[in-house]
């Protein structure tokens, strides 16, 4: 009985569709993490600037993304910006924009924290050796900062992967939506379809996020001393 239920819900066709949905999720996560990390490094450097104005504006940008839930941001861009500018944006693009902006803010703070935690004498020694701004960052500060920020950055990546589940709420057809469609189709033959599908989604997200969080913990333990 139980096995027939499983074979009815998890047909090869359904599994292929779920994989297709997972691909959309992965695309959103990957592009946002990539943009967020690269822009975040720039943003982090800006945050360590000496100018009070630049610091203040960066701080404001970060806090705005921290204090307002990401789902609210998705709504603001998906419903608000599109109607204000009278344009149409696909949910997937909206998700990438919001996650990239958010990723930039959070990544920037991680980079700032890493750079500020470096001992001052590293900068002073670099200067004393006659290194310019770029050489100082390129050869002295960034290689050391990367070690300190990598665990946090990987953590951020898992958070972003988990947050991609929210895009179903702005109408993107990704893995959760495909799951819901399969439940809708098979609910008359299989009453418990939602249990199996959501159980599978639960496990899928776990399989993606768990190795990342283990890696982050390992690196933290390895580089902490």
């Amino acid at each position: 009985m139980q096995s027939s239920v499983i074979s009815m819900v998890f047909t090869s066709q359904n599994l292929m569709r779920l994989m297709g949905g997972l691909l959309v999720t992965a695309r959103i996560a990957f592009i946002s993490i990539a943009i967020g990390s690269i822009a975040g490094i720039g943003f982090g450097l800006l945050m360590t600037s000496k100018s009070k104005w630049i610091k203040g504006i960066c701080r404001l940008y970060l806090e705005i993304f921290r204090i307002i839930p990401i789902l609210v941001w998705l709504y603001i861009v998906y419903f608000g910006i599109t109607s204000a500018l009278n344009i149409h944006l696909e949910g997937e693009l909206v998700a990438m924009i919001v996650f990239s902006l958010w990723g930039t803010a959070e990544m920037g703070d991680i980079v700032r924290g890493a750079l500020e935690s470096l001992p001052r004498h590293q900068i002073e020694s670099g200067r004393a050796l006659g290194l310019g701004f770029w050489k100082l960052y390129r050869y002295v500060l960034i290689p050391q900062a990367v070690r300190r920020m990598l665990p946090g950055a990987i953590n951020l990546a898992t958070r972003m992967v988990k947050t991609t589940s929210l895009v179903v709420l702005i109408g993107v057809v990704e893995v959760v939506k495909v799951g819901q469609q399969i439940i809708e189709v098979s609910r008359f033959q299989v009453q418990t379809a939602s249990l199996w599908i959501y159980g599978l989604l639960f496990i899928l997200y776990f399989i993606i996020c768990y190795p990342l969080s283990v890696l982050s913990k390992r690196l933290e333990a390895k580089w902490s001393n």
Partner: peptide, 19 residues
């Protein structure tokens, strides 16, 4: 820690009710 709240809620609300 490694699963999204949305999936946890869906599982609880739509999945477990089936049991």
């Amino acid at each position: 820690r490694n699963t999204p709240l949305l999936i946890q809620l869906y599982f609880l609300y739509f999945g477990l009710t089936k049991l």
